[in-house]
Amino acid sequence: MRLAVRISRGLATLVSLAVLVGSGYGWVAYRTLGDSITHVAGLPAGNGAADDPAENILLVGDDHRPANASPQVLAELSTGEDGGSTNTDTMMVLHTPAAGGKPTVISLPRDSWVDIPGVGKGKLNSAFADGAADGGGDAGGMKLLIETVQNLTGLQIDHFARVSLLGFYEIAQVLGPIQVCLNQAVDDPYSGTVLPAGVSTLDAKQALSFVRQRHGLPRGDLDREVRQQYFLAAELGKVSSSGVLLNPVRLHRLLSAVGSAVQTDPGLDLLSFASQFSSLSAGDVTFTTIPTLGTPTIRDSSGANVSIVAVDTAALPAFITRIVGEPSAYTDATAAVPSSVTVWVVNGTGQAGLAAG
């Protein structure tokens, strides 16, 4: 099994705050942290105000790098082979049920081919950039991404947390080395990943390169989802046992990295969020991915060939219902006007042309 170290740039960061609940130093540090985190009014109108004690938090990690970054910083981030973007390469919904139930993390593959409101069909990871364009900024980007996720899943997003590429690197430095095991050696110039087969212990630079690797993976984006889930499970145990939480110097470094790297909506109470995880272990969190049909190559509206993740929209409602119950978006839905329905056919066979016509 190929394992990796994809940090949930939102969840792994916020879970680290669980220690603040039981530490006098942590309470002081938390106050400072609250002042340093950037708040963005990125929730669509009406979101975040529901009385339902269950919550859905969208966790986002994107590929943007700091403005005017020096060549030395870019070298540490291994971004020399790409131009950078605001595309969101990690997207997960953290569902925390009412009455203290165990949480579930739902991964949303970045290449999922979805309907983006006002734009049309596109990859899920482009929704933020589409919303941020033309003066929308970070708030416009988050709103469009959240609307896209809500339309796809039927879940209302109550809060969000967004972490940058540099933020991941700085947090990984504080948390220390991560061990992975590869079936085959890797040499990927796009992400900067150069690792042998077998067990390797990765520093922050290597970990960042490894989690950014997309090229050369057998199932592409779907393999990265497995890595994300593996890392989160490992981090839930590591953060509480590595000594970071009991070491004021290391905790201060971690909180400084978090504060400079995280954006949230103004209504997300990090202390309350952390308290929900203070007694959880890795086995208490369920990790899952929305149902998919594979990774076909299709032609987009411009005629270009695009490799995507085909979402199994027929199986999605039952999948979501098993996790959270039946969302109101399902029970309140009305029948579509037949003339407005578009059927999208994917050829999953090896014989060309069967999906045409």
Rank of each mutant, 00 (worst) to 15 (best):
S301L: 09
N151H: 02
R9P: 12
V262G: 00
I308M: 07
I323Q: 04
T286L: 11
T96F: 01
L268I: 09
A29V: 09
D223P: 02
P97K: 00
S241F: 03
L3N: 11
V337R: 15
P117E: 07
Q173F: 01
A129H: 00
S36H: 13
N87K: 00
L245H: 06
V345A: 07
P117G: 09
L270N: 03
G137M: 05
T193W: 01
T349W: 04
G46Q: 06
G100D: 08
P117A: 04
A18G: 10
A261I: 05
P327E: 02
L268G: 03
A204W: 03
G48Y: 13
G192Q: 05
L124W: 01
A50F: 10
A274G: 15
F319Q: 08
R2W: 14
V5E: 12
S200M: 03
A336C: 13
N125D: 13
G42T: 07
P44Q: 10
A335G: 10
S328N: 14
L254W: 07
N247H: 10
D312Q: 06
A335L: 11
Q206I: 07
N347H: 05
Q263Y: 08
D203H: 12
S281A: 13
V239D: 12
P189T: 09
P327A: 01
G259P: 01
D221C: 03
A257S: 07
A257L: 05
G34N: 15
G101M: 08
G237K: 06
P66L: 12
S16T: 10
Q213W: 00
S16H: 11
A318P: 02
S301R: 11
P97R: 02
L182P: 00
I37F: 06
F273P: 04
N347C: 07
V119C: 05
G24K: 15
A314F: 14
Q184V: 03
G80S: 09
P103H: 04
E81Q: 13
N247K: 06
Q150F: 00
F210Q: 14
D312R: 06
G353S: 09
